[in-house]
Amino acid sequence: MHTREEKMEAYGRFLDILDELRVKCPWDKKQTNESLRPNTIEETYELCDALMRDDKKEICKELGDVLLHVAFYAKIGSETGDFDMKDVCDRLCEKLIYRHPHVFGEVKVETAGQVSDNWEQLKLKEKDGNKSVLSGVPAALPSLIKAYRMQDKARHVGFDWQEKEQVWDKVKEEFDELQVEIADMDKDKAEAEFGDLFFSIINAARLYGINPDNALERTNQKFLRRFNYLEEHTIKVGNNLKDMTLEEMDVIWNEAKKLGL
């Protein structure tokens, strides 16, 4: 791998290029925090997609795109006199040192779980940190990830099941309540109960060490592969999906399953 000097040289070259683009490129010159934000979200999701596929080449590329956005926001901050890239790095270093007293201080820990618990407690103690346990969960997070993060943060202060197996009673309770509202044809209440059921299932995944977002994306990708197989097979034989029965589709779907798709 590259030496520290080579890495610093590459990083400096990157910042020099960004400075030049900000001055000479019409598109880069006009960008603001507001105009960049949607692109930042898109780039982050593209990185997540590469990570899910474990595509090393794409991960490297997408990390560069995300880094560009981080540096761009710092560049804008320097132009307004609020902060620059040095301030960003300094604050990050200070936070990392403060939240790792087991590395840079005298605190003793033995497990990753203890590190995570200490991290959350230290966040609450910081002068400009979160004022409540759940205040650090971004409002803009996708609902599934937000539910997982809220549950995990609540866990750090002891708000959790004593035994993980207890969560299944809650899942069953929420499912039963949903069935009642569906039977009553009350759409508003059914929506609320669907939410409660999803929340309890996400909680169950957390308790069993499963990331629910990753689990759902695996199923999304599996469905995509099998449905594409179904569609491609149907086109090859000159048929149209709309003209097929569900039973006929199931035969091809099961073929895809047997092929490991």
Rank of each mutant, 00 (worst) to 15 (best):
M1T: 11
E5Y: 02
E6A: 11
M8T: 04
A10M: 10
F14R: 04
L15C: 07
L15I: 05
I17G: 03
R22Q: 08
C25D: 15
P26Y: 10
T32Q: 07
N33L: 11
T40P: 01
L51T: 04
K57M: 14
L63F: 10
Y73V: 05
E79V: 01
C89L: 08
K95Q: 05
V109A: 05
V109D: 08
E110S: 11
A112I: 15
W119K: 13
K123R: 09
G129F: 05
V133A: 00
A139N: 05
L144H: 03
L144M: 15
R149E: 00
K153N: 03
A154G: 03
H156M: 15
F159Y: 14
E163A: 10
K170N: 12
K170M: 11
E174Q: 12
F175I: 06
I182K: 00
D184V: 08
D188Y: 09
K189C: 02
L197M: 10
S200G: 09
S200M: 13
I201K: 04
I202H: 02
I210C: 12
I210L: 14
A215T: 06
R218S: 15
T219I: 15
L224M: 13
L224D: 13
F227E: 02
K242W: 07
M244N: 03
M244E: 09
T245D: 05
G260L: 06
L261E: 02
